[in-house]
Computed example of a mutant assay.
Amino acid sequence: MTTAAQGSEVPEFRSARADLRRRQILDAARRLVSEKGFGCRMDEVAAAIGVTKPAVYRYFPGKDTLIRAMLEEDLVVPTKALVARIDAYEGPIRGLLEIFAEGTLSIQENGLSRGYMALAMDEAQSRPDVAGLIRENVLGVSVMRVAQAFQRSMATGELRKVEDPTLLVRLFFAPFMQIALVRGGFGVPMDGPAAYRDYVKFHIDAFLRAFGPVPPSGA
């Protein structure tokens, strides 16, 4: 191998090594957050992968930067994928609600929902930019897509028209927030993922019975 060829491989090797180290830091931080919450320290993250704290800061200049990176991977990226599925869907409203429900439950299960829910509720003052990321790029975009779907369904007659569609969206969202609270140790206890899915199925059925088209007289 020529010297020139060897030289061309050096940046690629360094990039791969940097990507690996970044992945190790994120995975270690995720484990610590799931165990201790967002009170875990950067030196604990460093110790978990056998490096110094300055080595961690080389990739993530501060704790908030590290938290934002986890949020991006665990919540923002899967939310974008869910929104893409919703945007591509052209069937009846029930199917769209089922897609949204399954995607949201999956994000909650895989996204350290306990820690992130606590962050959104309890640390909005100390980390307003991070809490804002959750509101705008996860909750906000989901609410907007559901609102758009409801408006389309009202226009086609799949859902009956209501005076304030925002109230309809909030009503539909309520059980998912309840599940997030249960996962975080609040609310009425539920027996895990199967119970969450039964609850959501019941909710979708009840929601469509309540706000679907009014049946013809005598039907």
Score class of each variant (00 low, 15 high):
162 V>I: 15
26 L>K: 12
44 E>G: 02
20 L>S: 07
117 M>K: 10
157 G>K: 04
98 E>A: 15
136 E>L: 11
216 P>T: 10
16 A>G: 05
196 Y>T: 00
163 E>T: 12
22 R>P: 01
203 H>K: 04
218 G>H: 00
65 T>D: 08
208 L>A: 05
135 R>C: 10
156 T>C: 14
24 Q>E: 09
179 I>D: 00
128 P>C: 02
135 R>L: 01
83 V>H: 04
66 L>E: 02
97 L>M: 13
96 L>C: 03
49 I>P: 05
15 S>H: 07
175 P>Y: 08
34 S>C: 13
128 P>E: 02
14 R>E: 10
5 A>L: 15
2 T>S: 13
137 N>W: 06
112 L>G: 11
168 L>V: 08
103 G>N: 05
138 V>N: 02
98 E>H: 11
55 A>L: 00
188 V>N: 06
71 L>Q: 07
89 Y>Q: 09
167 L>R: 14
3 T>E: 10
115 G>D: 02
138 V>E: 02
93 I>M: 06
71 L>Y: 06
121 M>N: 02
116 Y>N: 02
161 K>N: 12
22 R>D: 03
81 A>S: 10
176 F>L: 15
58 R>E: 09
175 P>N: 14
49 I>W: 14
195 A>L: 15
131 A>Y: 01
51 V>H: 02
62 G>D: 04
49 I>N: 04
31 R>I: 09
118 A>I: 08
81 A>M: 12
46 A>Y: 05
161 K>P: 12
143 V>M: 13
89 Y>W: 12
83 V>G: 02
98 E>Q: 14
198 D>C: 01
3 T>Q: 07
87 D>K: 04
121 M>I: 11
42 M>P: 08
96 L>A: 13
216 P>V: 06
207 F>C: 09
158 E>G: 06
56 V>T: 09
111 G>Q: 09
181 L>K: 15
166 T>V: 07
106 S>T: 15
22 R>I: 07
204 I>W: 11
67 I>T: 03
19 D>K: 06
25 I>F: 14
45 V>C: 06
11 P>T: 10
23 R>E: 08
198 D>G: 04
48 A>V: 11
52 T>Y: 04
127 R>H: 07
218 G>R: 01
214 V>I: 13
165 P>E: 08
112 L>K: 00
13 F>S: 12
35 E>M: 06
59 Y>L: 07
200 V>C: 01
195 A>Y: 00
37 G>C: 04
144 M>I: 03
158 E>F: 04
2 T>W: 08
181 L>N: 05
80 K>W: 11
120 A>D: 08
62 G>T: 03
39 G>C: 11
47 A>S: 13
216 P>K: 07
133 L>Q: 09
29 A>V: 01
28 A>P: 13
66 L>A: 00
188 V>Y: 15
19 D>Y: 10
154 M>P: 01
8 S>T: 07
171 L>S: 11
109 E>C: 11
16 A>N: 12
125 Q>L: 09
175 P>T: 05
89 Y>V: 05
50 G>Q: 02
169 V>L: 11
4 A>N: 08
63 K>I: 01
18 A>E: 10
176 F>N: 03
49 I>Q: 04
165 P>V: 06
13 F>W: 14
1 M>I: 10
164 D>P: 14
26 L>E: 02
80 K>E: 15
1 M>E: 09
124 A>H: 01
33 V>D: 00
199 Y>E: 09
